[in-house]
Simulated assay, not measured.
Amino acid sequence: MVTQFLEENKINILEWASQSPDVNPIEKVWSLLKWKVSKNMKNLNDLPQLKRYIENIFMDDKEIKQLIIKSIKSIPDILQQIIEQKGDVIS
């Protein structure tokens, strides 16, 4: 149904993985989050404590918040680069 609509309306689709870190802003956030958690793993004794720690990072960590905002704001530029590269890898 979607494919038919796109074809009928002559909408081109970029051949680009939907999970690509280039177009998925959360990937950079996950990387930073994993790094922050791994730094403090020895201080986390159980799963509930780990969960609270991760929730606190998302709520209070300025670096994570700034990265989320920056990543979201960069999406239009990244998409433009992908279009210019005709779906090829961007640097």
Rank of each mutant, 00 (worst) to 15 (best):
K28P: 05
V89A: 12
Q49E: 14
N9L: 02
L47W: 14
K51Q: 11
N12E: 15
I83A: 03
S18C: 13
W30D: 09
E7V: 09
E27I: 10
V29F: 03
M59P: 00
N40E: 09
N43A: 04
M41Y: 12
N12K: 12
I26P: 05
D22C: 09
L33K: 02
E8S: 04
Q19I: 15
S31T: 15
E63H: 06
E8W: 05
P25K: 03
K39T: 10
D61W: 01
I11W: 10
V89W: 14
S18V: 15
D88E: 15
L47D: 14
Y53S: 02
I54A: 00
N40K: 09
K36C: 00
Q4S: 05
W30C: 07
D22F: 13
K73H: 12
D60N: 13
M59W: 11
R52C: 01
L14M: 14
V2G: 01
S20E: 15
Q81T: 02
I11Y: 12
M1K: 05
L47F: 15
I78W: 02
E63F: 06
Y53Q: 00
M41A: 12
S31P: 02
S91E: 15
I13E: 04
L33I: 11
I57V: 05
D88C: 03
K70C: 04
F5N: 02
V29G: 01
I90D: 06
W35A: 09
S31I: 13
L44R: 00
S18H: 11
M41Q: 13
N24Y: 13
E8D: 12
S38W: 10
I82R: 03
L47G: 11
T3I: 12
E84C: 06
